[in-house]
Design a protein around this nucleic acid. Structure first.
Lengths: 240, 240
DNA sequence: ACCTGAACACCGTTCAAGT
DNA sequence: ACCTGAACACCGTTCAAGT
């Protein structure tokens, strides 16, 4: 029916690195890291494996591109405040951190992959971007220049650890039964030997009722407070 | 030469779950996660693959046992203080955290695997142990009971994030050239566009000279300070 | 019960060959 | 330049068969 001039369109456009990365993200979102396979990719894009390697280099590299794409989009969506207003630095750090947290929630594979990739290449483009967006507002927090790297590292490490821990189990479970999962865990905790695990037993109830995102927010606030308390000590510090 | 009565000894004892886990840890230590293969394991233990599956269930399970073994050993090596002495809770939390950090340094595969496994099964035996050892002293920090779970989570998340980020790249690089690696990274950072990455550029020098372990320690102190500052506010909190 | 090792169904990656 | 798809060298896991 349609004229022949745009024939390439029905056959799913031309292949390109972007289209491959896009398809990879869809596969990852649908079923986790294990679902990203060169063969699945060739089916979805109806090509041969060679075509993919022509554009992409390696599966690992493709995964990195997927991470980079998602993280960049998340960070770009966080607005940069116009000028340093009242209490602005804390607000921006919170916004960046929550932007990452929410991206990890939307893409359940992200946190684990991000953590793994950062260990593999600690200073790749993704880490760089995260550091820049966290570090820039941090400077307005009263931290002396020689502590900038340490303070921003602490924030970034907390963000990475918390998102990894909180975002859903990578491949397993149909996502919906989170409440059920927390409930089962809480019950298991309550059944622990009180001699061996008094603390875990005591917090089982809090664990069941906690809200991941809310807790992440208060965690960020705790770290921010630690940074400002260290560098703006009010009067002398209490001894004993 | 030796009498026949102990024939089993030369042929590397009998196979057991413990011996398999032990061999797995050796393989991991020697060459990272990729080196742990059922086939390599059968060669090292001179058996068939079926023998391994008879004892172990699955490769994933074996990996979890390896993690559990190493983490348990690290935590057990940290002494529990006799009674709550002066400033003891902070000291114990620091000791536990550093125990984990040092274990991750000795076993370069550990941090990444720990992070991955915790995402897979957030409340498995490993997480449980870590939480218990961190949470117990934390109670003496002045945190009200309804915040116990949140405060201990913040600590644990920071510990996991920082060890993951700081412990060497999993499989790559012969470990030795860390200084060289930091140097190359610092140079790359200094060459970044100052318009795009002013912060990262500014801290490149600090990055090169930083000491991972020392920085981890100050990170823990920052989080601890954040916790105590939140829950023991001196006078009223400064507004604006 | 404990072990053997061939066989199965998958991987990622390469490469001669086509257009 | 871009793509095809068979082939290669690996995986984890199973299972009939042995002791």
């Amino acid at each position: 029916m349609a004229p022949r001039t745009r024939q390439s369109q029905r056959r799913r456009q031309v292949l390109s690195r972007e289209r491959i990365v896009e398809a990879a993200i869809e596969l990852l979102d649908a079923a986790g890291e294990g679902a990203l396979t060169v063969r699945t990719l060739t089916e979805r894009l109806s090509t041969g494996s060679g075509a993919i390697y022509h554009h992409v280099g390696t599966r690992q590299e493709l995964l990195e591109s997927a991470i980079d794409t998602v993280v960049s989009a998340a960070l770009d969506a966080v607005p940069t405040p116009a000028r340093d207003r009242e209490g602005a630095p804390e607000d921006e750090i919170r916004a960046v951190a929550l932007g990452l947290f929410d991206a990890a929630t939307r893409h359940p594979w992200l946190a684990a992959q991000l953590a793994a990739q950062i260990t593999r290449n600690p200073w790749g483009p993704v880490t760089l971007q995260v550091f820049e967006r966290i570090g820039r507002p941090m400077r307005a927090l009263g931290v002396p220049e020689h502590d900038w790297f340490a303070a921003s590292s602490t924030l970034v490490h907390y963000i990475l650890g918390a998102t990894t821990q909180n975002t859903q189990h990578a491949d397993a479970a149909p996502v919906g039964d989170r409440a059920e999962f927390l409930d089962a865990t809480a019950r298991a905790w309550q059944d622990l030997d009180p001699g061996d695990y008094p603390f875990v037993r005591a917090v089982a109830g809090q664990m069941r009722e906690h809200d991941d995102r809310r807790q992440f927010r208060t965690g960020i606030d705790t770290v921010l407070k630690g940074i400002t308390a260290t560098h703006r000590p009010r009067r002398r510090q209490a001894r004993t």
